[in-house]
Design a protein around this nucleic acid. Structure first.
Length: 571
RNA sequence: GCGCUCAUAGCUCAGUGGAUAGAGCAUCGGUCUUCGGAACCGACGGUCGGGGGUUCGAAUCCCUCUGGGCGCGCCA
């Protein structure tokens, strides 16, 4: 099954060429033809504005162009009627008999409904979450998690082979800080005199979970670690956090295929090789200050030793970036570039990074790095997910993992449900900010679009269950008995193809969430009036309607699954 | 100050240069001999932040102003 706009567009394109050949239209390059459902149903099921766009190129008035296209339009089984309207719109209406037949098509497709082949089996990788394992997964991070997973699902539906990857960021200073923080808590748990740093000391992680870890560690290791440095503590904290984050993600139905460990980039030498390659291409220099540093910067940054700088300004960056600090250790950016080199080496055709807004600059530098190495940076696509602001009691809760202030995904799931959380975090354009009112989320979780959508599925399942109990089968139903309301739903259901295509090509998985709500909004009134098992309904009509509900159930299940949500049989 | 991003109904938000800008929630008023009820119907609610521009056509593109968020580290 292909999205219907393509099918229409092909007809229009053929018509334009035929009209040109016949001399009804002048010669011009045929543009990409956009077909879409109009806002109002009396304007047809699909409409083309191509004649208006062509007016200038063709030197004709739009209505005459539309008429010429109409005249040469080939026949097609899915087309019912075509109209040319005032300024030059061409409005298509789907054939009713064809629509009826789509009920069987939908049932036959089942869980592969609108499984597209845009990806043609090419390999895509979606990297998301990729949080430092320094604290539990926050609500803010969870947004990227949900968006990332939904994007992966949409790409799968579009025909890509998708890998979900978590870049496990376990090298670097923050993890050492984490190890040191746990070490303090460990000594504290042993009753040794320790001074817990004050809240402004951001090298100390103050979350209570480290206190729990410390007590567990005492149970497991006793006093054997009193003289140890940060290393065993880092390793322990990392392992525990890793398990925790993975469990939290699993609760909302998110599972990564690959956990890519930053340390391996060091172990394999990839980090230093990337540095050498940048050097060989002439993009590095050693200096205390970046080239062209201002007097101000000289004063701010003077006194430090020589660092290795990446001349990213040569590629359009606003300033050069440090790759190796004056103490000889790399910044985060260098392994990140090495990581993306690694991704490209693994042969993915499409790379998607889901990042928080606070990493908005970082990915640009990585791209400059990839470019500097002569690799194809255009394969790297970035979804910037804007920040989530948590609101509680009408006030903003400033979140900070280091300070130990945060709302976790676990808390939210505990208070609502995995499906509610997924939907709330998905049903929003990624680049719009999200104010998450936690009180409201909990309070309204029973009066939520999520249940409205799921209830559509429940109702379909329920009626089919009841039909089975009554010994009524929908096999061989006469779909000619379906009414206008049912066909209206089928029309909308067939838009799923376009939704998947747009969501995949534009990397906008939230479209699925809004579409699902529209579909449910259309469904419930139909369900209310189109009865199947009522005693007034003749058996043949009942069978046709049951067939319709079977198709509807498949559509809802497909849509819910695309969002990573459950499709319950009962509620 | 610079960069990115956002501003659409009371609230939370959709809206791929097309025709009369849409949902959910809230509010108000109805439906329901319950069968399948987390349901249905209706009403209220808009200078698409302000101002210019491009276009046959702008919520959508460009400029500018205002107001939020994020970034601007030899942190990650």
């Amino acid at each position: 099954m292909k999205p219907l706009p393509h099918a229409h567009a092909r007809l229009v394109e053929q018509a334009i060429r035929a009209a040109q050949a016949a001399g009804d239209l002048p010669l011009f390059d045929v543009p990409v033809i956009e077909i879409r459902p109009p806002k109002r149903s009396d304007q047809g099921d699909y409409a083309a504005a191509v004649a208006l766009q062509l007016a200038k190129a063709a030197g004709m008035n739009p209505f005459d162009i539309a008429t010429a296209i109409y005249k040469h339009l080939p026949a097609a089984d899915f087309i019912g009627a075509v109209e040319v309207i005032k300024p030059g719109f061409i409005n298509f209406r789907l054939s009713e008999s064809w629509l009826r037949s789509q009920v069987e098509t939908i049932i036959a497709q089942g869980d592969r409904l609108f499984q597209l082949d845009l990806g043609a089996g090419r390999r895509a990788q979606v990297e998301f979450v990729s949080a430092n394992p320094s604290g539990p997964l926050t609500v803010g991070r969870s947004r990227g998690a949900v968006v990332g997973d939904a994007t992966a699902r949409v790409l799968e539906a579009a025909g890509y082979t998708v890998e979900r990857e978590y870049y496990f960021n376990n090298a670097g200073a923050q993890m050492i800080n984490l190890g040191n923080s746990l070490r303090l808590r460990y000594l504290e748990a042993l009753g040794q005199p320790v001074t817990i740093p004050d809240p402004d000391d951001l090298t100390f992680y103050r979350g209570d979970y480290l206190i729990d870890f410390a007590h567990d560690l005492v149970k497991e290791q006793g006093e054997s670690l009193v003289d140890a440095d940060w290393q065993p503590f880092k390793a322990y904290a990392e392992r525990r956090m890793f398990e925790w984050i993975r469990e939290s993600l699993a609760r909302v139905n998110i599972r990564h295929d690959v956990f890519f460990n930053e340390n391996t980039l060091y172990d394999s030498g990839a980090v230093w090789k990337t540095l050498d390659d940048l050097q060989a291409r002439g993009y590095l220099y050693r200096a205390q200050l970046p080239e062209g540093a201002s007097e101000e910067e000289r004063q701010d940054m003077g006194g430090k030793g020589e660092a290795v700088w990446f001349r990213s300004t040569a590629l359009g960056d606003e300033k050069d970036r440090v790759m190796v600090k004056s103490d000889g250790t790399p910044t985060y950016t260098l392994p990140d570039i090495a990581y993306h080199v690694n991704k490209l080496e693994r042969g993915f055709d499409l790379l998607v990074n889901v990042l928080g807004a606070d990493h908005g600059t970082q990915h640009k530098v990585v791209k400059y790095g990839i470019q500097a190495l002569g690799l194809d940076a255009s394969k790297i696509n970035v979804i910037i997910v804007q920040m989530v602001r948590a609101i509680r009691g009408g006030k903003e809760v400033r979140m900070s993992t280091r300070r130990g202030i945060y709302d976790t995904l676990d808390d939210l799931v505990d208070q609502t449900s995995p499906d509610v959380v997924r939907y709330m975090l998905l049903a929003r354009s990624p680049n719009s900010h999200l104010d998450f009112d936690l009180d409201l989320a909990v309070k309204q979780s029973n009066d939520n679009p999520v249940y409205y959508i799921q209830n559509a599925h429940v109702r379909c399942a329920g009626i089919l269950r009841e039909a089975t109990a009554r010994g009524l089968s929908d096999a061989g139903a006469d779909l000619a008995l379906l009414g206008e309301a049912e066909l209206r739903f089928i029309r909308k259901a067939l838009e799923l193809g376009e939704v998947i295509e747009l969501a995949a090509t534009q990397l906008e998985a939230h479209r699925v969430a809004f579409y699902a709500l529209e579909l449910a909004t259309l469904f419930h009134p139909i369900y209310d009036s189109v009865r199947a098992l009522h005693s007034d309904v003749p058996t043949e009509v009942a069978k046709a309607r049951l067939r319709f509900y079977r198709a509807a159930q498949i559509v809802f299940r497909r849509v819910l699954t695309l969002m990573g949500m459950s499709a319950p049989e009962r509620m």
